[in-house]
């Protein structure tokens, strides 16, 4: 009976993380999100966490819907607060809540459209199209959080905050328009067909199932 416990844990992990290809793609998405954040630190709102989050929800589903954005955000928020530090813990926690919940919402919307995502131009177009209102919605949500916790105490009105947010949101939409088709196409291909291996008999020619 004791042996059942590890086995049940393993089955929970397998059902949560998916098969080997899904796990590798999940780790790839985390790498894309973290690397993009590190490389493009000096370009405000040009980032890859958004696309990784959207793809995690719409391609991988399962635990990756939450794992990819949270893993990337651990790195992103640590970096952000090392530069923009000096704020009290409650302020940092408040702003982080808005950022994390915003990305989780993006992932959940991605998960909702998952059955319609296949390796087709239409799917990339769908992902790209929904990324625009999602990016704007995410920015409005986090701008509200930043206003409430960071700038409202200085007497800045929400209207001024939203106005100041506009150019940053344009850059964020630009980022989504570049990275969603780019990484979307690549990951849709890898998700559908995998990657070549040295021995042909180990390479599945079957597209990944959509269960």
């Amino acid at each position: 009976m004791a042996g059942d416990v590890p086995r049940s844990w393993r089955s929970i992990l397998e059902s949560g993380l998916g098969d080997g290809r899904t796990q590798i793609l999940g780790i790839f998405l985390i790498i894309v999100a973290v690397t993009g954040t590190l490389v493009m630190r000096r370009y405000a709102n040009i980032e890859t966490v958004f696309v990784a989050t959207l793809l995690a929800g719409s391609l991988l589903g399962r635990w990756w819907t939450v794992l990819v954005p949270l893993s990337a955000l651990v790195v992103q928020q640590t970096l952000a607060w090392s530069v923009f530090g000096g704020y009290a813990l409650s302020t940092m926690t408040g702003v982080t809540f808005f950022v994390v919940s915003g990305y989780l919402f993006v992932a959940l919307v991605g998960r909702r459209i998952r059955p319609r995502i296949l390796f087709r131009v239409k799917s990339v177009a769908l992902l790209t199209t929904i990324s625009v209102p999602l990016t704007v919605g995410y920015d409005l949500w986090t701008a509200f959080g930043e206003w409430y916790f960071l700038t409202r105490p200085f007497g800045v009105t929400l209207g001024v905050m939203i106005e100041a947010q506009v150019p940053f949101t344009l850059y964020h939409v630009l980022s989504s328009l570049i990275f969603v088709p780019l990484f979307g196409s690549a990951f849709l291909f890898l998700h559908a067909y995998g990657w070549p291996t040295r021995s042909a008999d180990r390479t599945s020619s079957e597209p990944l199932s959509r269960e």
Partner: peptide, 20 residues
């Protein structure tokens, strides 16, 4: 520096108007 004690960071105003 902004990384100092809690709740503090550098902000600027010009003629009393908060820098946006």
């Amino acid at each position: 520096s902004n990384g100092g004690s809690g709740g503090l960071s550098w902000q600027f105003w010009v003629n009393g108007a908060y820098g946006t």
